[in-house]
Structure formats: C-alpha cells, structure tokens
C-alpha cells in the first residue's frame, strides 16, 4: 500500500496511482503512475484526447473505481483503502458530482432533484427541501424550483446539477465535461459560477473536459495523455470573474 506523506491543508492527494484492466496479454494500463494534489478552493482542469484515461482517472477520484496501485486521500482519509460498503457514504458527503448531460431525475422537480441527495445523506425531508431551495435560489433558480427538468433550459439544468453537487457541503466537486451540452456563452457562464463558488466557499474543483474555451477559469490545467500527465500549466494571474 502506498503511504502518502500528509500535506497539511490539501483537500485531495493522489500518489502514484495506476489502473490496469485485464491481465496477461489483454492487460491495458489506463492510468499510469499519476500523482496530484488539489488545495481547498483550487480549480484544476484535466484535459486530454479521447482514450487518454480521463474517465478512469475521474472515476478513481470519485471513489467509483479503485486504483490497481497507489493511494487516494481525501481530507486525510485514504479512500482508496476503504471497504466498498463505506464508499457510498463518502461519495454522498464528501463529493459533489456534475455530469456531462446533467443526469437529473426526470420525474422530480428542480427542488426535488437537489433535496433527494440531501435526504440520502440523512437530512430530514423538510430540512433537505429548505436547504435545496436556498441553494437553488442563490444560483438564480428561485423561480424554477417546481419546474421539471424537461421545462428547464440547458444552462438551468446544469445549475440544478451544481446545486445538487453542493447540497451536502462536499470538500471536492468533480465535473465531467460540464459544458459539453451547453453553448459557448452559457458554458462559460456556468464555469464562472463554479469557479466563484469554489473560491467563495473554499471547495476544490476538478474538471475533466475537452473544451479549450474554459481553460481560463482554471487555476491549473493538466494535460493527460496515454494515462500520464504530460504537461501542467499554472495560471499565474488571479482573475476576477
């Protein structure tokens, strides 16, 4: 087991993780010896071509997949070493997920989609709904609380998804191609919103995307290719959005 030297104040630390599928002649290495730390309030963008291992890396960061080697630590807890049955609770309370095609529950309203995640984490229905309403209102959806997803625009759906990601006060938000189904203007707007939340609330954000246009909202851009980080660009200037 890989021991990670504890770095004070880091939200996420991944040390030398490798993921291999199959065995023998059919073995494929999707991610090879990748290390990364993400600080509170930091926005990290991971880019790379198709098949570079982005999905596998994101799945491991989100405790959906275990690395073959290496360790992943979240707020001091080595989640890669935890038993399978403890991971749903970690995902629910420590992570916020934003998906490419929003993945909202079609039968529930905007409010219901956010509240259900709080309820799953143990909040009472009334408390969950109040908290969900408050976050949605903060994100500008106060007038859309009782709308079903089919009645919302793409940008509104992604804001509901952001509210859902925030409702359990996660330490880390993982976003998978969050602008893929949005036009350029709305996509950028959503990314600015996500960055502002990260900075204001001190939450770490890891985004996996092909979208070159959102590079400017990241603090760091990492280029993943053939399962390894090839290049890191640190955005030197702190920008105001």
């Amino acid at each position: 087991m890989t021991i990670i030297p504890q770095v004070q104040g880091e939200t996420l630390q991944i040390a030398h993780i490798t993921k291999r599928y199959g065995s023998g002649a059919t073995e494929v290495t999707a991610v090879h010896d990748v290390s990364l730390t993400v600080s509170p309030g930091e926005v990290v963008l991971i880019m790379g071509p198709s098949g570079s291992g982005k999905t596998t890396l994101l799945s491991m960061l989100g405790a959906l997949l275990k690395p073959t080697e290496g360790a992943i630590q979240l707020n001091g807890t080595t989640i890669s070493a935890l038993a399978e049955n403890r991971l749903p609770d970690i995902r629910l309370k420590q992570f916020g997920f934003i998906f490419q095609d929003f993945n909202l529950l079609s039968a529930l309203t905007a409010l219901g989609n956010v509240a259900i995640v709080a309820e799953l984490a143990g909040s009472k229905p009334g408390v969950a709904r109040r908290k969900a309403a408050s976050i949605l209102t903060e994100l500008g959806l106060g007038e859309r609380l009782n709308f079903l997803p089919e009645k919302l625009s793409g940008g509104e759906k992604q804001r509901v998804a952001i509210a859902r990601a925030l409702v359990n006060d996660p330490a880390l938000i993982l976003a998978d191609e969050p602008t893929a189904n949005l036009d350029s203007k709305i996509g950028h707007e959503i990314m600015r919103l996500l960055r502002n939340i990260a900075k204001k609330q001190g939450r770490s954000v890891v985004i996996v995307s092909h979208d070159q246009r959102i590079k400017d909202i990241a603090d760091r851009v990492l280029w993943l290719e053939d399962g390894e980080f090839k290049e890191t660009v640190t955005m030197a200037v702190e920008r105001e959005f």
């Binding site: 749903p88 995902r91 629910l92 309370k93 997920f97 995640v117």
Partner: peptide, 16 residues
C-alpha cells in the same frame, strides 16, 4: 437505468 446508475454514483445505497 441511467437515473439509478447516477444515484448510485452520487452515493445512494443499493437498499435505497
């Protein structure tokens, strides 16, 4: 199926 998969990813337990 996809919605249930998404709920699982978010942290819903199978029993839920």
């Amino acid at each position: 199926r996809r919605e249930y998969g998404m709920l699982k990813a978010l942290g819903a337990r199978n029993t839920d």
